[in-house]
Design a binder for these strands. Structure first.
Length: 275
DNA sequence: CAGAATACCTGCGGGC
DNA sequence: TGCCCGCAGGTATTCT
């Protein structure tokens, strides 16, 4: 489900309910995720107060006095806030019960998500320490992208989706940003001109900001943190529109598999050309 | 070393 | 109706 905007939306959704609140207990129903949920999480979190809640890439970091809970939603993970204890469903893995009677429930049918605990600086955690810059930060600039891409022939879309280069850009927004920038998804990144790097960075920021503003692009299995059905308001220009006409030029959009991921683009607006 | 392939899961929709 | 296939928003690990 989630790319950066969805994770950000989820984070924003849970913050008002759990910020500065105290954990009463943790109930682990299904510990198997990408890695097992730490067995002693109840003992670890009990009576601890939430200091703050951050996002880094697609990770949600819930900081406590003794350490940080790292949460990744994988492909199908969801976090919901419950105000009453609704009976758990099949794929509800964990409940974190707070003393204010709010419950943070983690659900993940495909189990690609993760819930981990670290008592050290979370930025030094093995999963976080090699992450690239935040796409909405000043560090992620056209110059940065240009400089990072000089020695690689990797396809532009694959480069964007690699979190070592930039975090938070997944299959949907990579395709959307490349369309906005008029860049072919298979273009080798060392072919990108500085002008194209600037356009691409601008496009990424624009599409992510817009999606955050709309509350995250949501597909069939996304619910926001209140358990409401997600929004469908962000109009995707290429993702999921294969064989349909391009909004700009009416050319039929093409779908290719790139690194086993569906990759939709306009062969005319995103032709291999330089600026 | 970079880059590609594989693996981890469940659920759903389409074709037969 | 039911079975089989391919596909789904991610990414660590293994391979070439």
């Amino acid at each position: 489900m989630p790319e950066l905007p969805e994770v950000e939306t989820t984070k924003l959704g849970i913050v008002p309910h759990i910020h500065h609140n105290v954990v009463d207990k943790v109930i682990i129903r299904h510990p198997r995720l990408r890695w097992p949920i730490p067995k002693n999480l109840d003992a670890t979190l009990k009576n601890q107060r939430v200091n703050n809640i951050l996002r880094r890439g697609k990770y949600i970091l819930i900081n406590f006095p003794k350490g940080t809970l790292l949460i990744h939603l994988g492909m199908s993970g969801r976090l919901k806030i419950l105000s009453e204890n609704i009976p758990p469903q099949k794929h509800d893995h964990v409940d974190i019960l707070f003393t204010n009677h709010k419950i943070l429930r983690f659900t993940d049918p495909r189990r690609f998500g993760a819930i981990l605990w670290t008592s050290d600086n979370p930025c030094e955690h093995v999963l976080l320490k090699n992450l690239g810059p935040e796409p909405l930060s000043a560090k992620f600039s056209g110059n940065f992208l240009f400089q990072k891409t000089r020695n690689s022939k990797i396809a532009a879309k694959k480069f964007l989706m690699d979190s070592k280069n930039v975090v938070g850009v997944g299959n949907i927004y990579a395709a959307e940003a490349l369309f906005l920038a008029g860049i072919h998804p298979e273009l080798s990144v060392n072919q990108l001109t500085l002008v194209q790097c600037n356009k691409l960075v601008t496009a990424i920021k624009k599409v992510l900001k817009m999606a955050i503003k709309k509350g995250g692009t949501t597909l069939k299995d996304f619910s926001n943190s209140n358990g409401e059905p997600g929004y469908f308001s962000l109009k995707l220009k290429v993702y999921g529109r294969q064989k349909l006409p391009c909004f700009k030029c009416k050319t039929i959009l093409e779908n290719r598999r790139l690194g086993q991921r569906a990759t939709v683009f306009c062969p005319k607006c995103q032709a291999f050309k330089k600026y």
